[in-house]
């Protein structure tokens, strides 16, 4: 049997046919079933539990995010999301440079708290130079100063039924005439008690600017930026976030994003 050299003309014809086939089936074929809220989306989203458990398994008890030297701070912290809240309540506390601000700590606690900025600053502080990873893909290194969330939780005393820490914020993401959707987020007690999880009032050696969440924002260094709520008004300790807003544990989570934002 002799070797058969392929017919080159036939080859080119087949290539053309294949190319036209490929252009016929666009990716929009999947649009109808994959959107936020669709059953397929909700099914695929279950993989987030696997991600959380796998990450917690390899992390061990207190995985420390890398802390960088001061020379790694090359630019100001890029603000994202809300950068200048206009809600009445926020404008009111902003007027006197947050002198009248009080952080409320409520929910499943032995002793509800109401802490001023000075009281928070008087507590032992932690300063860390860490990398902020945005869900969009960019990163920015900055120095954050604040009080460890675990210290605030200890002062309030957490009841045994407590499972999540919910951050209630001053900023509204979707302003309509009839409605305000206030930003909120939630983390579990493992993230909340992490030594690098701080309520930050300082950025790069200065008071936290408004664009970055003044007067108080949270840093959760094992997760992405959208977990790190800014303009925190109150901390609520709960056993479930199913009844809060859309029930998914956060403003972006209610819009299809994963609750565990470690990746």
């Amino acid at each position: 049997m002799s070797k058969i050299a392929p017919d080159r003309r036939r080859l080119l014809g087949q290539l053309g046919a294949a190319a036209s086939l490929l252009t016929l089936g666009g990716c929009d074929a999947f649009d109808g079933v994959l959107g936020v809220g669709d059953p397929v989306h909700n099914f695929l989203r279950k993989a987030n539990v696997l991600t959380r458990e796998a990450q917690r398994a390899i992390q061990g008890p207190a995985p420390m995010a890398r802390e960088y030297p001061a020379s790694a701070i090359r630019e100001g912290q890029r603000p994202n999301g809300s950068t200048d809240p206009q809600t009445d309540d926020y404008l009111a506390i902003q007027k006197d440079d947050f002198a009248g601000y009080r952080l409320q700590v409520t929910g499943l606690v032995d002793k509800p708290l109401s802490l001023s900025l000075n009281e928070l600053r008087a507590m032992p502080s932690r300063t860390q130079i860490t990398r902020h990873d945005c869900v969009e893909g960019w990163s920015c290194i900055a120095q954050w100063t604040g009080v460890q969330l675990s210290r605030v939780l200890d002062r309030a005393g957490i009841k045994p039924a407590a499972r999540y820490v919910v951050f209630r914020c001053y900023d509204s993401m979707d302003d309509t005439l009839s409605d305000q959707t206030l930003y909120y987020e939630s983390i579990d007690l493992i993230s909340a008690r992490h030594p690098q999880t701080i309520l930050a009032y300082g950025l790069n050696g200065q008071a936290l600017p408004i664009a970055n969440g003044a007067p108080l924002r949270v840093r959760i260094e094992q997760q992405l930026g959208y977990k790190m709520a800014k303009y925190i008004r109150a901390i609520e300790i709960v056993d479930s976030f199913a009844k809060i807003a859309g029930g998914n544990g956060g403003y972006w989570e209610d819009r299809g994003y994963d609750w565990y934002a470690g990746s």
Binding site: H41, G256, Y257
Partner: peptide
């Protein structure tokens, strides 16, 4: 995928 901009769904997939 999806054809329109949807980061949340892109990440989930």
């Amino acid at each position: 995928i999806p054809s329109y901009f949807d980061l949340a769904t892109g990440r989930v997939i």
